[in-house]
Design a binder for these strands. Structure first.
Lengths: 266, 266
DNA sequence: AAGTGGTCTAGACCACCAG
DNA sequence: TGGTGGTCTAGACCACTTT
């Protein structure tokens, strides 16, 4: 007879900094997704665990089954869950990967493998964008941009050279950050949602400067990953990430089907 | 007072060879998706075109709005459409790319750029899998696998060396194909659905054999893309695709938001 | 004000898997 | 056979864009 949708006030499980402010309160299905991801990441629901059925979740969340279904279906598409008709919904083994399509943070990757992550900041400045850079950042030539060059180490071995430019208009306080504690990727992701992401991957022979910064022997090729990210039609940042061939490779595994490798038992 | 779901008989727009047989008739929302993709690919609905509203589609397909909504939402997630609340649904510019996450066919890429695609088959045989290969293909050592080595040319310049192994159990008639007409990727994709896909990307210095096959100068690095694909838990094929650095790079652009670059007007 | 997409509901029928 | 997920319906309220 009146309001069908009973909007609940915000609960603790939703904080999204800027995106929250920009996008308004989260829809129910996304809150359910977040709560489930939290359960998985905290270890409450370990890999292989059979999570409550849709009907159980309908009961505990007090929502319609279609809403729970959408949350579970999307989490399944995103690789968190495997759904088997007639049997149940299970937490998948691999907690996401695919460093190519996603915006992953080198510090997390290094730590996840049990190594020590350190950085060396080579350069950090505010410059006027020359023509080619302005083109890549889709701004006018001569406009101000931040430029930072840093090297990431895994157990004191250099594994990534990061050469990054940042739009000063979108992130004016970028250079004030302490990038020893929080990598630029981490900082930017936490601050600005990413609408669009572009990657180019090349094999290159490093130039002398790169060889020195990465402490490379002669004739060792590198992977060069060029990345640009957009928010509301503006380029937020563009970076060239250079990896020594012998110390790094890009990896991505992607399931197109729910039953990808995780069975109910086992 | 009885059946709510009125299953319509198959119409022409759904043919999926094996997947059709395996997965049964397509659900309505997927048939709608396919018809829309057909409209886009045929050029009936060009980039920027505003497609009929959900309510119009509800009328023409005689289905519920939720069903149309699911079709459009998924096509938007997949990058075909951009949806703008209050304004409409628009065909996006880039008809999909992201050669990394997806399984793209080198011949299509070359032709799409207006070049001539040719191949040279270097080797084609059935062999007993040695231990390391058996591991990668998740079969027993010594089991039979197909092995094919070929070079892809763009306007007679070699751009890709394809070194592929195929599971004989899943695709027994693989070697009978004419790969001058239809690339292995194309053939396999048309035959077997892909449940899961793994990619690894390295920078390498080519060995002498690779240098010769790709007609490379000294000291030119290459991108090596290692790919494995699964169907129902079995590795169908594994391939190493080697690209000369100067002639090829991997590219991927990915919108996480509906409004990714395509406005209603413009 | 009219139209659009975003979300949600409370039901329904079905195919599938387990005990 | 009972529970599970897969899909679908016919309605609803809302925020937003366009006219």
């Amino acid at each position: 007879m009146s309001k069908i949708v009973e909007q609940k006030p915000d609960d603790k499980s939703s904080r999204q900094s800027i995106s929250e402010l920009l996008r308004g309160p989260e829809p129910i299905y996304r809150r359910i997704k977040n709560q489930i991801i939290t359960k998985i990441k905290s270890g409450d629901w370990p890999p292989g665990f059979r999570i409550p059925s849709e009907n159980k979740l309908v009961g505990s969340f007090k929502v319609s089954r279609m809403t729970v279904n959408r949350a579970l279906r999307e989490l399944s598409q995103e690789g968190y869950l495997a759904r088997v008709q007639g049997a149940g919904t299970f937490v998948k083994e691999l907690p996401q990967q695919s460093s190519l399509l996603e915006l992953r943070n080198i510090a997390d990757e290094i730590k996840a493998r049990g190594h020590k992550h350190t950085v060396r900041i080579v350069q950090s400045a505010e410059i006027a964008a020359p023509g080619d850079l302005a083109g890549r950042m889709e701004i006018a030539a001569g406009e101000s941009v931040f430029h930072i060059i840093m090297v990431h180490f895994s157990d004191d071995v250099p594994v990534q050279l990061e050469d990054r430019y940042v739009n000063t208009f979108v992130v004016p306080e970028f250079l004030q950050q302490n990038f020893v504690e929080l990598t630029p990727t981490e900082y930017l992701v936490s601050l600005i949602p990413v609408d669009e992401l572009e990657h180019r991957v090349q094999a290159i022979m490093p130039n002398p400067e790169q060889m020195e910064l990465l402490d490379l022997p002669a004739h060792e090729p590198c992977l060069a990953l060029h990345r640009r990210s957009w928010f509301r039609g503006q380029v937020v940042t563009t970076a060239v990430l250079t990896y020594p061939a012998s110390r790094y490779e890009l990896y991505s595994r992607y399931a197109t089907t729910p039953a990808g490798g995780m069975g109910p038992s086992s």
